[in-house]
């Protein structure tokens, strides 16, 4: 067995609230991803996915547990992960090229070098000719691709994608998923994707992890055995439908628990 690229070991997080109260958000989450593996994480809303992500990205410290990359503990360090938030967060004062080179510049790479490195990826990301455009001139899908380029170009060990297509309309989202799937097949990125979209998870990922309602634990961890490259038409195959059913059943159960937590009298 290959050593996992990234591993989460018994990650837990409790937030201290006012007046001595505390909220137990993440409870003992463990999973790993092999090099080049695409792992999708789904869970009921408000289950602590984002907290888990922030811990991985080094933005928050866990109460206990650790994050490992290539077998080394890297808890609280940011340089192993490239993080793509839900919003594209392209800065209006920077051109698309300048935006995509941001991560490299922040790391201290010379502007010219950083921009040249980012420019090399523009064709792959369907952005050729838009180097000097400003974010407001781009469509939603293009903006999201630019945000992904900004993430990928940092050449970190692991990509953390937090609902990257959540804000797009369904047709654009489908285009983006199909495009990402294609780009994925040609590269060996290791990635963890947070999503609400079960089909997106199955279609894109090698493995899908279902988180439980708060406090979050890993409820289900299934391997998606669909051949790559994947076609959009695959969504209608029986095999795909089986995965979808299994995930919906588990998620539905967890969502009801989450609902019960939020409004105890309703359920």
């Amino acid at each position: 067995m290959v050593e996992p690229k990234i591993e989460l070991r018994n990650l837990a997080k409790t937030f201290q609230l006012a007046q001595g109260q505390s909220r137990h958000v993440v409870d003992n989450v463990s999973f790993s991803a092999q090099p080049g593996e695409f792992v999708a994480v789904i869970g009921p809303s408000g289950c602590g996915k984002s907290t888990m992500f922030n811990i991985m990205a080094g933005l928050e410290t866990p109460t206990s547990g650790e994050v490992l990359v290539d077998g080394k503990v890297v808890t609280g360090e940011s340089e192993h992960f490239a993080y793509m938030p839900q919003k594209d967060l392209l800065f209006p004062w920077r051109t698309i090229l300048e935006n995509t080179a941001l991560g490299l510049e922040v790391r201290g790479m010379k502007k010219k070098e950083a921009r040249a490195k980012a420019a090399d990826l523009f064709a792959t990301f369907g952005l050729a000719g838009f180097e000097n455009a400003h974010p407001f001139e781009l469509s939603g899908g293009m903006r999201q691709r630019a945000a992904l380029l900004r993430t990928v170009v940092q050449s970190r060990d692991v990509l953390l994608l937090d609902e990257p297509f959540g804000a797009l309309d369904s047709l654009t989202r489908l285009e983006m998923q199909s495009w990402l799937q294609g780009v994925w097949s040609e590269n060996s990125w290791t990635a963890v994707l947070i999503t609400h979209d079960i089909r997106e998870a199955i279609y894109l990922a090698d493995r899908v992890i279902v988180l439980s309602a708060r406090p979050t634990t890993v409820r289900l961890d299934i391997k998606i055995d669909l051949p790559r490259p994947r076609e959009v038409g695959m969504i209608t195959t029986p095999q795909f439908a089986d995965y979808e059913k299994e995930l919906i059943d588990t998620l539905h159960e967890e969502s009801r628990k989450a609902m019960a937590q939020q409004m105890p009298t309703a359920v």
Binding site: N54, A57, G58, L59, S78, E79, F81, A82, Y83, P85, Q86, K87, L89, F91, W93, L102, G103, V106, R107, Q154, L160
Partner: peptide
């Protein structure tokens, strides 16, 4: 300044000064 933009900068490894020059200052203009 968008909190998430600050988080993005932090995830890139930006210290407080870089967060200021890259995002807080332009956001304030």
């Amino acid at each position: 300044t968008d909190r998430e933009a600050t988080n993005l900068l932090r995830s890139m490894g930006a210290n407080r000064w870089k967060q200021f020059t890259y995002v807080r200052l332009p956001s304030a203009l």
